[in-house]
Design a protein around this nucleic acid. Structure first.
Length: 563
RNA sequence: UGCCCCGUCGUCCAAUGGCAGGACAUGCGGCUUUGGACCGCAGAAUCGUGGUUCGAAUCCACGCGGGGCAACCA
């Protein structure tokens, strides 16, 4: 078990602590989580949410949820809803709920202000010309022929842009900075563009829309944010951020700090790519349990606590870094281990007949829901009878050394049941093992031998007559390579999808106790893994279980070793 | 190639001029009615070269390596 670590002090929290100590902002620390509603939140966002909301919580500050909805072409109310649901599910509540689209009026006022100050102008070059004239990383750009329009002309044009007089692309509002600036972002940054496009919240009331650089920092400033946390790729945008909040005249404006986004082995975390997985049918939707989305992880059975512990454990730094999947799985298991009941489910059944157990009879055995080291109590009755199913993997006719399970002539313990000894192997005409004949020792009821004799292995089982049929969905990594974002020439991420990322087991055998449990129940199937009933596809009498994560498997590791 | 950021165990994160530490992973052992969990032990790192300093992972310079920036995306 992982114990609570001392409070994490990353470089961002150090800076915030310093703000508090020096009174730099003359207000309590304020952060914001600023998603664009153009997709579902994913595990990388969880890191950002923990950071932003966590800092607000720890420093007695505030954290807003603000939708950066400045691009009407890609955004949708559906995403706004899913994002709120996901943030709440993670355990956070925002102090203020805002939309950049509510700031269009204020932003427009600042646009006019900049024009009047001679700090912005209307450019009428084509998109192509703008791109060409920006220059390259090694060559300076060239001034637009419209760069020296008079304030009056700029103001007139801007007002007519606002009035909807021009078609898309006819004009654009730009900051007047320096076309030879070494920072590409600062080469007369584009501020507003014309888009005759219905916005999901503002309808057709706005024919012009602010661009990210124009909207983001000023929105932060409107809300009194102190530290604007974003990922590394926005480093160069910091300069225009500061330029704008200063030109707009804010006192004690927010400051941007960049940190490294999460990269996780065997997954992709770009919204563009996740959207393709959904749209092109590689997964069943944004909440497919194989998706690294919050919704996908939730449906898979991951708990908010597990996800939070993971997001906190990986830390925050300025160095781009990939995290191993094992780290994530560790925190998922670590949380589940301490909270979910154990039950028995046989994935790949092999019939066992107890030849010395009376026919037609049966009994109920008491089985604890939790192992000795989990401080929770509770138990359920498990039916026992002459015919059982055990895991096919738990029997070997010619066992190698260190195989502790059932084999001809060998005795093992049935978990919470009896010791059994294999006496016969029954095969079909093709030589496949059809069933096992075993004897049981009536003196070992519950799993202890009065004579003190030990067995090497304990295996799980279900009573054939009483078992429920269940569908199991065994999930594995979505990709076959650790970094699907970095592939050889000519390959793209859809070429390295794992064909076995979902294996459906249509007829697993599970103990009947789970039949009464509500959908969304989580379990550990003993010796197999953690599972949750699928909230969408489970049916009365026909439960569907999603495998959240396997158990650590020392035997699999041993098996994989040569010798 | 111009500007910017970053280089610490296999991986992630600490050490804020003074004994390089934690977590995950790995290996070995213990314990065990889950080959789970837990416990113990072990191996494992400061990109390089100079410099400053009593003392450098930390400061400076130069290399080398990785990443970001040339959407009317965010």
């Amino acid at each position: 078990m992982t114990h609570a670590a001392p409070p994490k002090r990353d470089f961002i929290r150090e800076l915030v602590a310093e703000d508090v100590a020096t009174g730099r902002f003359h207000r309590a620390p304020a952060t914001r989580f600023p998603p664009e509603p153009n997709g579902y939140l994913h595990i990388g966002h969880a890191k950002s949410i923990l950071l932003n909301f966590g800092i607000a919580r720890e420093f007695d500050g505030r954290c807003n949820l603000r939708f950066d909805d400045t691009n009407p072409a890609t955004e949708d109310m559906r995403y706004v809803e899913s994002i709120q649901e996901d943030v709440r599910w993670l355990g956070f509540e925002w102090d203020g709920l805002f939309f950049a689209s509510d700031y269009f009026e204020k932003l427009y006022e600042i646009a006019e202000l900049l024009v009047k100050k001679g700090k912005a102008y209307v450019d009428s070059q084509s998109e192509e010309e703008i791109r060409t004239n920006r220059g390259t990383v090694t060559t300076p750009g060239v001034d637009s022929p419209y760069r020296n329009r008079s304030v009056d002309e700029n103001l007139d044009l801007l007002r007519r842009m606002r009035a909807g007089e021009f078609p898309d692309g006819a004009h654009v509002l730009r900051a007047k900075i320096d076309m030879a600036h070494p920072n590409m972002i600062m080469r007369d940054t584009l501020l507003m563009r014309i888009r005759h496009f219905d916005h999901y919240r503002r309808g057709d009331t706005w024919p012009i829309y602010p661009l990210y650089d124009f909207a983001h920092g000023l929105s932060d400033a409107f809300e009194g944010i102190t530290r604007s946390l974003c990922t590394l790729e926005f480093k160069d945008n910091r300069e225009i951020y500061e330029w704008l909040v200063n030109e707009a005249g804010f006192e004690n404006p927010p400051t941007q700090i960049e940190f490294a986004r999460l990269e996780l082995d065997y997954t992709v975390l770009s919204k563009r790519k996740l959207l393709r997985l959904v749209n092109e049918g590689f997964v069943s939707g944004w909440d497919d349990p194989r998706m690294p989305t919050i919704a996908g992880l939730r449906r898979r059975g991951v708990t908010p606590e597990g996800l939070r512990n993971f997001a906190e454990a990986i830390g925050v730094a300025r160095k781009p870094a990939r995290t191993e999947l094992a780290t994530f799985e560790h925190y998922v298991r670590d949380d589940l281990n301490m909270r979910v009941p154990r039950v028995m489910c046989v994935v790949n059944p092999l019939k066992v007949v107890l030849t010395n157990y009376p026919e037609g009879e049966g009994e109920q055995l008491e089985a604890s829901y939790y192992p000795h080291d989990v401080p929770l109590t509770g138990s359920r009755p498990v039916p026992f009878s002459r015919e059982l199913y055990i895991e096919r993997e738990d029997f070997m006719e010619n066992p190698p050394k260190k195989f502790f399970r059932l084999a001809p002539g060998r005795e093992v313990r049935l978990r919470y049941g009896y010791f059994i000894t294999c006496t016969d192997v029954v095969k079909d005409s093709a030589g496949e093992i059809e069933e096992l004949r075993c004897t049981y020792d009536p003196a070992t009821r519950g799993g202890d031998a009065p004579d003190g004799r030990k067995v090497q292995g304990t295996i799980h089982w279900v009573s054939a007559r009483h078992a429920l049929d269940a569908e199991l969905r065994l999930y594995d990594k979505l990709f076959t390579v650790p970094n699907p974002d970095d592939l050889p020439e000519g390959q793209e991420f859809t070429d390295v999808l794992n064909p076995n990322s979902l294996v459906v087991v249509p007829n697993a055998k599970i103990e009947p106790s789970v039949g009464a449990d509500p959908v969304g129940s989580r379990y550990q199937f003993e010796r197999t893994g953690y599972f949750m009933t699928d909230p969408v596809d489970s049916r009365e009498g026909r439960p569907v279980f999603n495998r959240t994560v396997t158990l650590r498997d020392t035997w699999a590791k041993l098996k994989g070793q040569p010798g």
